[in-house]
């Protein structure tokens, strides 16, 4: 079934939250709409769904890869060039720890940046439905519902006090 994007613009957060409630009552799943704001609102301010993400996984993977690289580089270098220094063992942990720590940090940082790009869905090729008035404080309610429900969604948004409602077809 084809989906249609509809954007309702609200003057205040209360009306936007009411519109969200109305959509839920009309049987629109909470995964099918999103609130667009110009600043971060507290969790659950609009009665919206709880978002889950895996960003915390990325730095762990990066750190693990960085640490492994650090261990391999230091161990292999010291084995390849066995220079005894100050009576310390060839594979001595304190000097290895410096390189391993740096490798861990670099891996974690790099993977976090990559994770941010992917988890926040930034590399979308096509700009979706948006209105610049959101940057001036209006709250956007973006609904991606089945095409046949379009008129009903528009009616709900208008009924909840939207100052403007636009769809992808406009």
């Amino acid at each position: 079934m084809a989906k249609q994007a509809i954007l309702g613009l609200f003057q205040d957060a209360e009306s936007a939250a009411n519109a969200g409630d109305a959509l839920k009552s009309a049987g629109i799943a909470d995964t099918e709409y999103d609130f667009l704001t110009d600043s971060p609102y507290p969790e659950g301010a609009f009665g919206e769904r709880e978002e889950k993400h895996n960003l915390y996984l990325y730095p762990f993977i990066g750190a693990l890869l960085g640490l492994t690289s650090g261990i391999l580089i230091t161990a292999m270098t010291q084995v390849a060039y066995p220079l005894e220094t100050g009576g310390k063992p060839i594979l001595s942990l304190p000097p290895m720890a410096i390189v391993c720590y740096e490798g861990t940090m670099l891996g974690a940082i790099l993977f976090t940046v990559i994770g941010i790009v992917f988890e926040s869905r930034l590399p979308k090729m096509k700009m979706g439905l948006y209105d610049n008035r959101i940057t001036q404080g209006l709250i956007g309610l973006l609904v991606n519902a089945e095409q046949e429900k379009g008129p009903e969604v528009m009616q709900i948004l208008n009924g909840a006090g939207a100052v403007d409602v636009k769809s992808e077809d406009d």
Binding site: F35, T37, E119, P123, K124, M127, G128, Y130
Partner: peptide, 11 residues
């Protein structure tokens, strides 16, 4: 493609 969705703010 920043829109200011809940997910984007959380990330």
């Amino acid at each position: 493609r920043w829109y200011g969705t809940k997910r984007q703010w959380q990330i």
